[in-house]
Nucleic acid binder design. Sequence first.
DNA 1: AATGAATGAGTCTTCATTCAT
DNA 2: CATGAATGAAGACTCATTCAT
Lengths: 206, 206, 206, 206
Amino acid sequence: MPRSTYENLVMVAATLFRQQGYSASSISDILTAADTAKGSLYHHFPGGKQDLAIAAARHSSQCVLELMTGCFERARIGNGCFYDGVQYLIEEIALLFDAMESHELSPVSATLLNGASNEAFRKEAESLFVEWKEAFITEGKRFGMAVDIVRYLGNKLLLLMEGAWVIARAVGHAGPIRDVGIIMREDQWSNPNMSSLTLMASAETD
Amino acid sequence: MPRSTYENLVMVAATLFRQQGYSASSISDILTAADTAKGSLYHHFPGGKQDLAIAAARHSSQCVLELMTGCFERARIGNGCFYDGVQYLIEEIALLFDAMESHELSPVSATLLNGASNEAFRKEAESLFVEWKEAFITEGKRFGMAVDIVRYLGNKLLLLMEGAWVIARAVGHAGPIRDVGIIMREDQWSNPNMSSLTLMASAETD
Amino acid sequence: MPRSTYENLVMVAATLFRQQGYSASSISDILTAADTAKGSLYHHFPGGKQDLAIAAARHSSQCVLELMTGCFERARIGNGCFYDGVQYLIEEIALLFDAMESHELSPVSATLLNGASNEAFRKEAESLFVEWKEAFITEGKRFGMAVDIVRYLGNKLLLLMEGAWVIARAVGHAGPIRDVGIIMREDQWSNPNMSSLTLMASAETD
Amino acid sequence: MPRSTYENLVMVAATLFRQQGYSASSISDILTAADTAKGSLYHHFPGGKQDLAIAAARHSSQCVLELMTGCFERARIGNGCFYDGVQYLIEEIALLFDAMESHELSPVSATLLNGASNEAFRKEAESLFVEWKEAFITEGKRFGMAVDIVRYLGNKLLLLMEGAWVIARAVGHAGPIRDVGIIMREDQWSNPNMSSLTLMASAETD
DNA sequence: AATGAATGAGTCTTCATTCAT
DNA sequence: CATGAATGAAGACTCATTCAT
């Protein structure tokens, strides 16, 4: 099925923003990659680059959510536990990272948190991260995990993954992403103690 | 003491890069903020913006190292343990973050990993991260910690902190940074098991 | 009565051209203000912006003519003289000017003489100004005034009013328009001498 | 003497703005006509087109002032009266108008009152017009004219000339400008009565 | 008649950099 | 060392217009 101009722009922009960051990706870059005329972009995105960035971030975020869903589904199908789903997810991201010709940055961060502070972008990024955490919790519930524990794991995983995306770019390979898997595995054996679960500052923002 | 033009440029650039990222910070921005003439910059940094970015990243990185040294020194002076130093460091960064009028990004990442992939920048970023890890190990040794464990802790802290810097910008407060403290505290009670220590992919790059 | 799309476009365009001038008013501005779709405009005005400008100028001009007719009618009804009608007209325009939120420019000039020289526009403007003068003469005849004198008065009023529209915009109030009334009043007492009446260069173009 | 880039830009812009109006004159037009690089313009006029417009309007206004001074000087040298100076001025402008390949608009109006209302432009235009009136009064004093009468004549001449510039463009020749001379000549024989002198609304703004 | 997607030349402005003084 | 003029490619965005539906 031939992609619509709108969809095409979103996908091309999402990719470019992940590869080069929002600020370093020009409208012309996007137009060239999408093989689309200048005016078309502003027809579909009257707010220009910023509108497009929001749409692109949502698209990238959706891809992450689908990846997550798929990995936990795989764990369920294979009679694995929740922690297996986590490992699948991390490995999947690591594989994707290594497969990229140009190592991409964390999708939301590269698209929305890449330049001068922008309140609209900040809010959007915040809500996308919340979506991720909520989806993570939903998956945990399906495995019968305690919500507190899953929330803690989600926060930890988010911090580690965002960091890993940065460090992976610096070292040029997916090693740091796989490290996240190793670190997350600890929790599988030694459950985090109660204080950690409840003290987390970010718990308030859920 | 009146700062030299060179130092002034580096410090101003370092700040702007942290606030807005490399790509979104223009030479003019820097020149205006530094109250310096156009030609001066190219006198001190013949390689232009890229030269300046390398210098700025090193400067920012140096600040992080000094913060680290200071925190562990404080732990030693107060007869605290290594883990106390870690907590001091995290809290110090959280305080700095909250004190900022414009929430800054992770210094190295904002300066060197913010745009299209650039091998010179990547290498510089990698080596700065290595410096951080080595400094961390050096501090650990002073406390009599096993190198393997400290290396593991350093990797974990680096991933978490880089991630926290991103998420903190998204939520608009230092909560995620403080969460790193909570997560790091686990290791204080339940030592990571041996396999984690040796399996870490990033161990190779040290 | 619901205005037709055509009429609506003409009126909206006429207003915008008077407020911002032809060159500074974009098709999009007009479409937005008229709440009309892009293609509709080119259906009704195949010649595009220029077609629309001609129609808008004629519309604005018609409004001026109606104002003129009304003012002289009022003078006749109240048993006033021709000069009273002139004063009514000037005061009416002054009132309209002060009532505008955005002080408008002279309608014909703002619409047709606002940009690079354009022969079609010039001709249209010229003929609209001739229409004004002829209507003025027609009104004068009704009051039994000598044609030469009325033509002279019309030329003088036209020059003064066009100038007043410009200066009124500059000072931000209708004062200069009311000044025209004061200047025109002179002729009421001291008839212009014969040479003035016949020497006028613009007489040729009538 | 080779004109400086700054002066050159001002003069070229002033001419283009008079010919095509501010809105219809693009930066590229100006750059091409001035044979200057894009960046240079923004070096000398950081505020861009608007800065340039202010400078251009002042330049054009200065030319008018010099023309005025010259004409009254000519009248004095030839033992003429103030009214002769007025006629010289009008004829001079008529000659200039006819000499133009592309009939220009009133300099201040075309440059500053040509588009959407702009308070900075409006203020500048107002003050330039005040300058003209003051210069006119200064000249009148030199001829021993009563200030009230000269102020009245200045206001009248300004309104007529601004209007004539518009109508001259419409008819395509300087006839309307010469008409101003004829109209102004009235005052030479029949002094305006006292009420006119004092009632003028614009008197307040002097 | 009306709609809105598409087009690409055009808008103003900023960019990083060079260079003569 | 410092200054600021010059450069022109590139930046984001708007323009008037066309056209298939």
